[in-house]
Simulated scan of single mutants.
Amino acid sequence: MTTSPGAVRVPYTGGEKESLHASLDRHRDAVLWKLEGLDDEQVRRVMTPSGTNLLGLVKHLASVEYGWFCTTFGRETEPLWFDPFAGEDMRAGQGETTARIVEFYGRARAAADRTISELPLDDLGTSWNGTTVSLRWVLIRMIEETARHAGHMDIVRELIDGSAGDHRPG
């Protein structure tokens, strides 16, 4: 797993797309940071009655990145080996290694980044439920989704080993 030191900063005077993308990247990086230094048992450790664990949240975020950024805009996505509509994206199965899920997240991010860089914010796509949405809306939705789960991961990580914080110290 490779991440850069310090947190991505949203530019104070950047353009709309640049700022939205930087905000998303900031939370994406926090998600990966929450896995650093943990062993396989720790990233899989269920910490809530609903079954929340760090690795499951990363798998879920990869799945929704592909769904919102790629499927919505008719872009290529890799075949999923699980059913996200059955909740299988929220947990890591026995044969799913940490590396496999982190690499899956990396590929989903790269595919989403291509969509973000190639399309204008006003470009329209059709979501999984048939709703017409703009790229701007999807970026905002994914910032919310990623920030929400990064917060969950912060709490789970603190329960595992006491580490806390919303972003890697710079």
Rank of each mutant, 00 (worst) to 15 (best):
158 E>Q: 15
5 P>C: 01
136 R>L: 09
6 G>D: 04
64 V>E: 12
22 A>E: 06
140 I>C: 15
132 T>K: 15
75 R>K: 13
53 N>A: 11
96 E>F: 04
53 N>K: 14
148 R>I: 07
41 E>L: 10
87 G>H: 02
125 G>H: 03
42 Q>V: 03
122 D>I: 07
12 Y>D: 14
99 A>M: 13
127 S>C: 12
82 F>G: 08
37 G>P: 02
70 C>E: 01
36 E>Y: 02
155 I>P: 08
79 P>A: 15
65 E>Q: 15
59 K>S: 01
49 P>G: 06
153 M>R: 08
53 N>V: 06
34 K>Q: 13
147 A>V: 15
109 R>F: 00
66 Y>D: 15
133 V>W: 10
105 Y>H: 08
84 P>A: 00
105 Y>I: 00
78 E>P: 11
44 R>E: 03
90 M>D: 14
129 N>F: 05
152 H>R: 06
141 R>W: 12
8 V>R: 01
153 M>T: 05
142 M>A: 09
115 T>N: 02
166 D>M: 14
86 A>L: 10
1 M>D: 04
17 K>I: 04
113 D>S: 14
151 G>A: 15
57 L>R: 04
111 A>F: 04
73 F>R: 07
28 R>H: 10
157 R>N: 03
49 P>Y: 02
15 G>A: 10
66 Y>R: 09
167 H>C: 10
44 R>C: 04
89 D>K: 14
19 S>G: 09
58 V>S: 09
30 A>E: 09
156 V>K: 02
2 T>V: 14
82 F>S: 03
77 T>C: 04
131 T>M: 11
100 R>D: 08
143 I>S: 00
109 R>N: 02
55 L>A: 02
31 V>W: 04
105 Y>D: 09
170 G>Q: 14
152 H>V: 03
68 W>M: 00
19 S>R: 09
33 W>P: 02
59 K>D: 05
115 T>A: 13
100 R>H: 07
78 E>A: 10
162 G>H: 12
116 I>W: 03
7 A>V: 11
127 S>Y: 13
22 A>N: 05
48 T>S: 13
26 R>T: 13
115 T>W: 05
140 I>K: 13
101 I>A: 07
122 D>S: 15
132 T>P: 12
121 L>A: 09
165 G>E: 02
100 R>I: 00
100 R>Q: 13
168 R>G: 11
41 E>Q: 12
37 G>F: 02
85 F>V: 12
156 V>P: 05
157 R>C: 04
134 S>V: 11
165 G>R: 13
24 L>E: 00
105 Y>V: 01
160 I>C: 13
131 T>L: 11
30 A>V: 07
129 N>K: 11
3 T>F: 03
67 G>Y: 00
60 H>F: 01
111 A>R: 14
35 L>F: 08
135 L>M: 08
147 A>Y: 08
1 M>G: 04
9 R>S: 11
97 T>E: 09
